[in-house]
């Protein structure tokens, strides 16, 4: 077997193991709850029978291993359990399945993340490559200084400065991203513009700096000097000789930043009241609705792990040293 295929399979296996352990940790969340949480969920007026019925429904009378198998089998079929909210002490149950809460919001979150990625990735590549081309020029220094400052700012600071400028002083965009399932595409893009812009500013900085660094790192290597000696122009050297070898680190950084997007999305969704998974999760944490928290955490963690895995594999596959083993 080719060594690359072997390494890729090893990474994939490692990813599956990580996913398994992470699911164990998230499942264990409910184990750590204090014993009387049934009472807390149902309210003080709940009778002992309702609490007992609630505990039986959660399967708390069965061993933990069995419950984990049950839970993970449900997750594999898209069943994430039932929300704690909507349960009354009288035993009336108006709670909704977690998947019904998450599914429409997941679509919105993916839309926002996708919109951001479509804008941010080409912009970061363009800025990074052009900054490397005109290295040490005023352009390069300005872009560098700007990105260094946006990196150190918290997301909500960037978000509120944008709101102040673009919705309050010069009302161009709506400050609340009020979208629903039947919003048309163009309208959706317009209403999601502010959160997408905030996320773009936050992640472009990092991607751009890494792109520039990856190219400049290569400029010191002997083969680039050789290319220079043959009379190639700066543009040719960077675009034809340096860039092809810089793709691996750049791809890794892009995937890593898309994974970061998963976390950044939580804060930004809350700022713009964007109906996504992040906001759902924060609400569920405040009301301690554990099944919803578990579902959201599982989705975020799985996305994060998969994107990091992709970054890893892209890094391995595009690495010339591994492609042509001695």
């Amino acid at each position: 077997m080719h060594p690359i295929v072997k390494t890729v399979f090893q990474r994939l296996g490692l990813g599956v193991v990580t996913l398994f352990i992470v699911s164990l940790i998230i499942f264990a969340a409910i184990e750590l709850l204090p014993g009387d949480f049934g009472q807390a969920v149902l309210g003080q007026a709940a009778t002992e029978e309702t609490v007992a019925a609630f505990r039986r429904e959660l399967g708390l009378d069965q061993p933990a291993v069995w419950r984990y198998v049950d839970w993970i089998a449900g997750v594999a079929q898209g069943d994430l359990g039932t929300s704690f909210s909507g349960r009354a002490s009288s035993g009336v149950d108006r709670s909704r399945p977690v998947i019904d809460l998450i599914a429409p919001r997941l679509e919105n979150t993916l839309f926002l993340a996708g919109l951001t990625a479509v804008v941010a990735v080409p912009l970061a590549l363009f800025l990074g490559i052009s900054a490397a081309l005109y290295r040490n020029s005023i352009y390069d220094r300005t872009v560098n200084a700007l990105t260094l400052t946006t990196i150190s700012f918290p997301e909500f600071f960037v978000a509120y400065v944008l709101i102040l400028c673009l919705t309050s002083l010069w009302p161009i965009f709506p400050s609340l991203s009020n979208i629903s399932a039947d919003t048309e595409f163009a309208e959706r893009v317009y209403r999601s513009a502010m959160p997408a812009l905030t996320l773009t500013l936050v992640i472009v900085a990092h991607m751009m700096r890494m792109t520039r660094a990856a190219i400049i790192n290569l400029l010191a290597s002997p083969y680039i000097q050789m290319a220079r000696l043959t009379g190639a122009s700066q543009r040719e050297v960077i675009l034809k000789h340096a860039l092809p070898n810089a793709w691996a680190p750049i791809a890794t950084v892009i995937a890593f930043n898309l994974a970061y997007l998963v976390v950044g999305v939580v804060v930004v969704e809350v700022v713009f009241v964007y109906p996504g998974v992040g906001q759902l999760m924060v609400d569920a944490v405040s009301s301690r609705d554990i099944p919803v928290v578990q579902g959201c955490a599982l989705i975020f963690a799985a996305t994060y792990i998969v994107l990091n895995l992709v970054a890893d594999i892209v890094g391995i596959v595009t690495n010339p040293k591994l492609l042509h083993p001695k």
């Binding site: 750590l32 976390v263 999760m281």
Partner: peptide, 21 residues
């Protein structure tokens, strides 16, 4: 540590805060 770092820390913190308050 590898496993703990596989979960984004803000998300992990949210899960733990929902359990412990």
């Amino acid at each position: 540590v590898d496993v703990l770092m596989a979960i984004p820390s803000l998300i992990f913190a949210l899960v733990l805060l929902s359990i412990f308050g």
